[in-house]
Structures are given as C-alpha cells and as structure tokens.
Design a protein around this nucleic acid. Structure first.
Lengths: 348, 348
DNA sequence: TCCCGAAGTTCGATTTAAATG
DNA sequence: GCATTTAAATCGAACTTCGGG
C-alpha cells in the first residue's frame, strides 16, 4: 500500500504538505500552485488512496450510516432501501445493512455492532414492528441521529417518517363510495401495529361525513403476527369467514396489499370475481400490485421518497452535529396517493 | 469514550496486559486468572468498547463485506440478500450494501468506495447483468475474494453461484409434457443475458429426447433491457403477438416469473383463462408467485441458499487469505426445484 | 505580519522486545 | 529458563506548533 509518506518522498515535500494539499485544508490557501501540481501528480502517479482507518481514527468520522430493517422479506422494504441508498450515495455515505428478523436479540447485537463501527446515523425501517418501548429506549441512548420509517413517534430525540395513514384510508374509501359502494367489508390491521388505528380513523371519519353505515359484522381484524407475508393467508381466511356469513357486501377494503391478495384469492375460490362481483382495495402499492390480475387498486405509499426523506433527515442531523447546531427531531407524514387500477368497479 | 488506557488505569495494569487479556492473545496463557478477572471486571465496569478504527488500522481488517447489487428492485434480490445477511451475521461480518442501478459509472464509484473501506470480500448480485468484460476485469484486479451470484463464470480468480438453469427449464418442460401438453409456446430470455442460453438448451434437449416438436412460430425472444421489471410488459406484449398469430398452443413457458405474469395478463385480456385454456410456467419463484391468482407454477431458484452459499464462499476465502492458504475460486451450480401450483393443468 | 514548509504529536489499539523476580 | 508484566514502536493520516525568509 502506498502511504502519504510515499507521496511525500516522491513529490519531494513533507507529508504535512501533502496532507494539506490533498485535503484542500484551510492552509492550502498558502501553498503555491506549482507545489500543489507536483504533489497531485505524485499522488496520481503512485495511485495513492488515503487509508480510511487512519483517517477515521483521527477524525472520528466513518461516513457510514446504519440501516436496520425489521424484516427484509417485507415487500415494503425494497423501494425504501432504494430511496435510502440513493440519497446516501449523493451525500457520499455508505449504508451498512442489517436485518433483525423481528428478533430482539438480533436487534441488540446488531445495534451494538453498528455502534462499535461508529455509524454516524441510524435509519430504522420498522413498518412491521410491534413497537417495544425498550427498543426505543435503546435507540435513544445511542445518541446519534436516528430516524424510524413506518412508525409514528413523538419523541424529540428520534425522528420519524411515515405515510399519512388516515388520509390514505380515506382516499380509498372515498373512491369506493364514489363508485357507489355502500355495503363495504373491512379487514383492519392488527391492534398492535401503529398503522392500524389511524387507518381506521380515516375510514370512520369519512363514513360519518357522508353518513355511511359501517356494519360491525363486516369488520374483521388481522391478528398480531411476526411475519408481514402472513397477512396473505390471514386475509384469505378472514375473507372466507366474511363470505360464509352470507351478509352481502360489494366491496372490501383490506388493511394492506398482502391482505388484499389473500382476499382476492378467497373471493375467486368462492366463485366471486374481482371486480365484477366485489371490488377490493389494498394499501402500500407493493411491486406486485400493478402486476396482479386484476391489477390492484391501492393506496400508494411513496416508499422511495420516504427512504430518501429519512436519509435526508439523518444527513442533515449529521451536519448539525458537526457544526454544533442543535439537532431537532423531524416528524414527517408523507402524502399517499390513490392508485386506481382494475380491482375496483363502479356500481352505477 | 473509554479507552484501553482507562481500563489499564482502573485495573492497575498496563494497557499491554489489558489488550492481551481482553483479546485472549497467545500471551494470555501466562497471565494468572486473578489478573484476568480484575481486568475483565474493570473493563465491564467502565463499559469499555475497543475502538474499531484503531484496531483496524493495526490489523488491517475491517470485518466488512461489500455487497453490490445490480438492480435492487429486481424481486430476485430480496431473498438473496436475506441469505447473505444471515450467513455473514453468523460469521460476524457486516455487509455494506450498494446498488449500482445497472450503471457503469455507479459501479466504478462504488467499487472504489468499497475498496477504500478495505472490505475483505465482495459479493456481486448480477442476475440481470449484461456482463461486460470490463466489469469482470475491474473485479479481478481488486484482489479480494469475490463471488458473483447469477452469472456463470469460468475464471479462477472470481467465484460464482448460479442456479442450474438447464435443469430448471427441463423440469418445467417435463412437467408440461407429462401433463399432456404438446403445443407449447416459449418466451425465451434476452440473448445478452447469460441465463438465456442454458435455459433454452434444457428445453431443446428434453424436446429431442421425447421427440417433442418445437414450433419456431411459437418461440419469442425477450429483447435486451436494463430493467428486470420491464419483462412484465414485454411478456404481455409478446403473448399478445402469440395470440394474434392464431396458432394454437395449450401451454406457455415464460423466461421468468415477471414475464409469466405479463403473459397471464395478456391471456386474460384475450379471454383465455389460466390454466383452463392455457397453462403457464415461470422461472425464479419470486415472492409474488405464490400469491398470484392463479398461483404460478414455476422453477424455484433457491435464492436464500444461493446468498448464503456466496457468503460462505467469501468467508472461506477470507480465512484462506489469513492463513496464507491458496484461494481457489468456487463455481457452484445449485439445483432448482419445481414449484407446482395452479397455473398449469393436465390435458389428459 | 505574511507565506511556505517541516517536525512532532495525536488518535487508540496491537505487538515486539525486553525487564523484572 | 520461566512466569509475569510493561515500555516503546507501529499502523497512516491530520493537526498544532514552530521556524526561516
């Protein structure tokens, strides 16, 4: 490996000068262009690359951000990660990716490993997390800029980025309502998930506004579960139950896309075609939704933008710390968008 | 931050001794248990955590592996990443994730950044890569253990992990054949993709064995494209063309699952139901396949195992380098498995 | 005082060589 | 020579201090 001393020798200057020139440090102001040229040429000639370990040891900076996903197999993650990656790339940070598999022990071990590596910030993708107060405490005491994606927070030590769940479910219901649907079934999210309540609130509020009656018999709840994917099966099961009741409904609002897929399957099995016999909506707009038959009408979470937003927040946090400015937690609620496709149909 | 010197002071020994004890270095053999106890207690009391920058500077090790994905949005990635993550976790390595978006410039910049960080090995997920000889050269001269997932290689400086494409497509065709299908349409992969040729070979060979005639009119080719997702649309388009020809076929083998989804959509649009009017098979078994309506019969790539295998290979490579053993490139071809679901149906 | 450059210290851990009894 | 411990050198870059013109 070629070191700064090699460059010093090659160029005929001291390593101090080389360091100043190559880093364009304040002192470089005084160094004549000729000297700079010679040093730069020497560096290029030798193919000099600074040793980041040495640099980091001195500067205490790693230019690294920890990314902690609670369940990588959740299709929600993909685009969020893309958004994070891209924003960090612009800012010249590199992400260390960890997947805690929804396990406490893994969470702890990974958090420790990341902190040992002096990550400068942490992004937690916690959409399917049944928030544990302990986890938050661990995160808070890490004392580096941290943002959670997918879980609403009120702390002012941790930032958060979520989609506006209430608005999202309202958009979906509004859509069904405007299509003429009045008998609507609902599969709500698990109570323990922070998204569930606001999504239901959006529905209830809209229903009240337009005087739409919500039939309690047509409201089902997803049980708590560790696996996002499993909502497919539960969606299937609950829809079967819904059908068995023989209480007619012309539309079904599922908690998320996975649940919607399960519901569509159950409907198909029962001989009910979507959207001819029943309209179905989802939430998220995972990659598969647009490819599904029928393509799913759903509420799109701006996942890539959410990832980018989170990365932006932590980068700003890092800069604030560097410049000794006060770091204030940001809480962003991003607007969802209704993706109208073919799983919903007008009754009129 | 508490340093080794703090522990030395607290325990009453020198930092040398502390280092020896805490790392359980060879010399620790001579150190009496009582001393060890006192040092360990002091370390725990102060909450000492070694500074990895300093340690790495000395040891020249980073305990980090670079992971380079060519396109994160490819659904193939998710499970591969999970497999990599999990295997690295076992071995106490952390992955730095980069996504080159199929762009040369990003590839180069990221490779440089990773090398600067002294990653100890590199895993490249290159399933949708139109292999560029330049890229391989860049990778070879990096001189760290490197493995490519999803692209067949013969070099003995780079390892590779792929699925047995030839066997996979044979399994799918065998399945259709045994179901009684004789008029089969094919959508082959793009010529520039390394998976395409072996998959076709598997088909040709099996057809020859059982004397199945392959109608050239029923064979379509996916064009070259940068986006894995786009094969959905192209699959749709090509299937439309296939239908327009009015040349009957009872089954369609798509190059991959995305293409199959597109094909099913086109068939549905034309009033042809799957599998009643036409059986369809895919390749990959991405997460969406099992959730699809109908659930897709497809060739499963053992993605998680492939990721774990790749991680295993590089970890072994790292150890070999450490112990100054010769590093030989490994080339693993993993067995696929037919996932029979509901998109195929017997004609008999 | 301004300009240019170098010597020496520091970051925190590991390791070699050596000093004790 | 053996068990036990440590001073000092080292890794590579960055920064502080200083000196000469």
């Amino acid at each position: 490996m070629v070191t700064i001393r090699d460059v010093a020798k090659e160029s005929g200057f001291s390593s101090t000068t080389v360091s100043i020139v190559l880093n364009n440090a304040p002192l470089a102001r005084y160094i004549p262009p000729a000297t700079k040229k010679r040093i730069e040429r020497a560096a290029k000639k030798l193919g000099y690359r600074p040793n980041l370990f040495a640099r980091s040891l001195r500067s205490k900076r790693s230019h690294t951000v920890g990314v902690m996903v609670f369940d990588m197999t959740d299709p929600f993650c993909t685009l969020v990660l893309r958004g994070i990656e891209n924003a960090l790339y612009q800012a010249s940070f590199l992400p260390i990716l960890t997947d805690v598999h929804n396990e406490r022990s893994r969470f702890e071990r990974y958090l420790e490993m990341l902190l040992d590596r002096r990550i400068e910030a942490l992004i937690v993708v916690a959409n399917w997390l049944f928030v544990d107060i302990d986890v938050l405490a661990d995160l808070e005491k890490s004392s580096i800029p941290t943002v959670m994606i997918g879980t609403e927070l009120e702390t002012d030590s941790l930032s958060s980025v979520i989609v506006d769940n209430e608005l999202g479910s309202r958009l979906a219901l509004e859509h069904l309502y405007s299509l003429g649907h009045r008998k609507i079934a609902f599969i709500r999210g698990p109570k323990t998930l922070s998204d569930s309540a606001p999504r239901w609130r959006g529905i209830r509020n809209f229903a009240k506004e337009v005087n739409l009656e919500l039939d309690p018999k047509l409201i089902m709840d997803l049980p708590e579960s560790r696996e996002p994917i499993s909502s497919f099966e539960v969606g299937y099961k609950l829809t079967e139950d819904l059908i068995k009741q023989k209480r007619p409904f012309t539309a079904l609002m599922a908690f998320d896309d996975m649940t919607a897929f399960g519901a569509i399957r159950a409907l198909a099995k029962a001989g009910l075609r979507v959207p001819e016999h029943c309209s179905v909506t989802g939430f998220d707009d995972v990659a598969a939704s647009g490819l599904y038959t029928p393509p799913l009408t759903t509420v799109r979470q701006p996942m890539e933008a959410m990832g980018a937003m989170a990365a932006g927040i932590v980068v700003e946090g890092i800069n604030a710390v560097l410049e000794k400015r006060a770091v204030t937690a940001a809480h962003r609620k991003m607007a969802p968008e209704l993706a109208v496709r073919e799983s919903t149909k007008s009754l009129l």
